[in-house]
Design a protein around this nucleic acid. Structure first.
Length: 496
RNA sequence: GCCCUGAUGGUGUAGUGGCCUAUCAUGCAGCCCUGUCGAGGCUGCGACCCGGGUUCAAAUCCCGGUCGGGGCGCCA
């Protein structure tokens, strides 16, 4: 369409003269500090928030055509960008007829640029006795351009209330993301990572990055994806475990990493993916209790910051939930400390409620359901049997379980039935590490890539790994991790 | 890998052997309308996952396949 070739380019940015209240509209970004760009003089959010002061001034806006209501010689275009939503009012008399017709017949979700003057919108008719809504503002368009046409029909409706299957949504994630509640979930994800970072940095942790292409497993157990690294067979990392420990051994004291982990397991559940983002920390001179403290303080910080700053995003999620007949989610800041349930006590709880489990067996999901009835929020399950933990977990000889089995300093953080975090104090004595390997039927000579790091002095240390998507599930009420992962990778999905 | 369950216009659905030339919503297309705002009115468009079988007759029953959903297992 020739019209798209003459879209208006904006002069270079000037200082922003606005004081925008944060988040004027549910789920929209605060753009009060955003500068003009080549394609717009203002964000829609800036005009919506400052409309009263801007009446009569000319603005150029750009966004997605959410709806186009043609009325013959006039036309209402609801324009949306990531910061807000505003009505553009087009009158055939006020602009070129070809442009008017082009915009009036634009398909939904086409991107459109308009230039016009800000005006107060005529108030909608309200029923007798109803209060008039607060004044709103619109743009009386004098010129514009269609930047990119959207094909019709859309595979996923952006404002339709029809519920769309997850598979169709993920195949069209770029469109799915335009939906308010989905967009809000990913804003929340960024906030959770931001607040988590803020908190760890405030406790002296520094951010690191570790390699994801490795030659040997950083730890045993799970299956790895193999690949060819030039002439060498290699794998994708399943955990930063070894590397964050080496960083601590190297004197970085307190480190964290937010990065991908890959596991070639054929699991197919709402809470597992084959590529996921793991939020890991490791700290020197710490034991399991110390890092549990870091974790619960971080959780508390994240939840209280979301409660203070981002409830509009939660609201956006709840609006959608209400349309689907689901209960709203709420942000209840957890109190400190989180309950600590030693493994032995957890077994007692499950047994007392009729669950079948013996000391030394794993606490499975249906057991967690039982525990969660008594501890519905965040809770630690600590001091697991050494036999159930990897060789690098620390133990103290004298700490024995109710049946006499060796306990470890490994712990999990659960919420409800789901495991959020696994962590523990690490074994820093190389001779004990090697004995642990032998106890588990493994050959120390096969693990020198790991144990060699411990031969030159090692601080006692501890750490944990947190599944970011699982945390988001708790915060947003999502029932599947795929909801809160942009482009999830599971057993049957490698695209888009 | 196991058990259960499902596949109908672009999307979400109704439909338990003949009443299906397939329901409804949304969508899409066209027309009318110079202030709509969940716009409205009118007219259209568009679907039974694939292959085989049973039957006079299959969206519907059977078999196989493909692809989903739920539960579980596997999973530091």
């Amino acid at each position: 369409m020739p019209i798209s070739s003459d879209c208006r380019m904006i002069e270079p940015p000037s200082p922003i003269p606005f004081k925008t209240p944060p988040r004027h509209e549910r789920g929209m970004r605060d753009s009060s500090g955003w500068r003009p760009t080549a394609y717009r003089s203002h964000t829609i959010g800036q005009v919506v928030a400052n409309g009263a002061d801007m009446v009569g001034s000319e603005v150029t806006l750009a966004g997605y055509a959410e709806t186009v209501r043609g009325r013959g010689a006039i036309c209402f275009l609801m324009l949306r960008d990531g910061t807000g939503r505003i009505q553009a009012f087009l009158k055939k008399d006020n602009m070129g007829e070809a442009l008017f017709d082009a915009i009036q017949s634009a398909t939904r979700e086409s991107t459109v640029q308009v230039t016009g003057t800000v005006a107060q919108k005529r108030p909608p008719e309200v029923a007798e006795g109803e209060p008039s809504p607060p004044p709103e503002y619109e743009v009386n368009v004098s010129t514009g351009a269609i930047l990119a046409d959207a094909a019709a029909p859309l595979p996923v409706g952006v404002i339709d209330e029809v519920n769309v299957g997850l598979d169709v949504r993920l195949d069209n994630r770029h469109l799915d993301l335009r939906r308010a509640h989905v967009n809000a979930m990913f804003q929340l994800r960024a906030k959770v990572l931001q607040y988590g970072r803020d908190h760890l940095i405030s406790e002296g942790f520094q951010e690191i990055n570790t390699p994801k292409i490795i030659v040997a497993a950083a730890e045993g157990g799970t299956n790895l994806f193999s690949l060819q690294y030039f002439e060498t067979p290699a794998y994708l990392s399943q955990s930063p475990q070894l590397y964050k420990q080496l960083a601590v051994l190297g004197g970085l004291e307190r480190v964290f990493e937010i990065g991908p982990a890959f596991r070639a397991e054929k699991h197919d559940t709402y809470r597992h993916l084959n590529e996921f983002i793991s939020f890991d920390i490791e700290g020197a001179w710490m034991d399991d209790e110390d890092v549990m403290g870091v974790l619960e303080r971080m959780m508390c910080h994240i939840w209280s910051q979301v409660a203070a700053n981002d409830l509009d995003l939660i609201d956006a999620v709840n609006v959608f939930r209400a349309s689907q007949g689901q209960d709203p989610v709420s942000v209840e800041v957890p109190s400190l400390p989180f309950p600590r349930i030693p493994y032995c006590d957890a077994i007692d709880i499950v047994q007392a409620e009729g669950g079948e489990i013996e000391w030394g067996e794993d606490i499975e999901s249906h057991h967690c359901d039982i525990i969660a009835t008594q501890y519905p929020g965040f809770h630690f399950i600590s001091r697991w049997p050494m036999s159930m933990k990897p060789f690098y977990i620390h133990h103290k000889e004298e700490e024995r379980g109710s049946s006499g089995g060796q306990l470890s300093r490994g712990f999990d953080l659960n919420y409800g039935r789901d495991e959020m975090t696994s962590g523990g104090q690490r074994e820093h004595r190389v001779d004990v590490l090697e004995q642990n390997l032998r106890d588990m039927g493994l050959e120390p000579a096969d693990f020198t890539f790991y144990t060699d790091g411990f031969r030159y002095g090692a601080p006692p240390h501890a750490g944990w790994g947190l599944g970011v998507a699982r945390l988001l599930m708790v915060l947003t009420g999502a029932s599947n991790v795929r909801e809160v992962v942009l482009f999830p990778r599971d057993r049957s999905r490698v695209t888009p």
